[in-house]
Amino acid sequence: MSNPWIAIGALALVGILIPLGMMSVSKLLRPRVPEQGKTSTYESGEIPTGDTRIRFNIQYYMVALLFVVFDIETVLIFPWTVIYRSALENGVSLMEILAPMLVFIGVLVVGLGWAWRNGAVKWVRSPRAASERRTKQ
């Protein structure tokens, strides 16, 4: 049996060559008319006000941290799902194969619940922006 990853590598090469090909075709076709003002970034027709290399409130920092945890969890679940059915068919008892995973997921669910209660899985409202809002009775 030949190595499938070589075949995938071949597709990767094609996948890069096709866009590169389009770029070179375009390079041959397209005009180049440099003008002052054309290259300014678009900001609704106004003169651009500064660039984006600024400190900015991204509001999903906690969510991003949680993502790392849960993403690893899914990685751990992969092998379990693969062997699950064949293990059952080969006579491993349900308790033996299901229970550990249930415990694992249970712990994660508890973790999610905890994060949920602490408000980590929601978009953090900016206190500054919220203070701009007139307090409603």
């Binding site: 609704s44 027709g45 006000t49 400190r55 900015f56 509001q59 900016s126 919220a130």
Partner: peptide, 28 residues
């Protein structure tokens, strides 16, 4: 960590030529 951004006058949402000078704090 706020950002000033122009919404309009040439923006898909302003239904005409309105210019909103907006200061964003994150998505807010």
């Amino acid at each position: 960590d706020t950002m000033f951004i122009n919404v309009g006058p040439h923006h898909p949402a302003t239904h005409g030529v309105l210019h909103l000078k907006t200061v964003l704090d994150g998505e807010q």
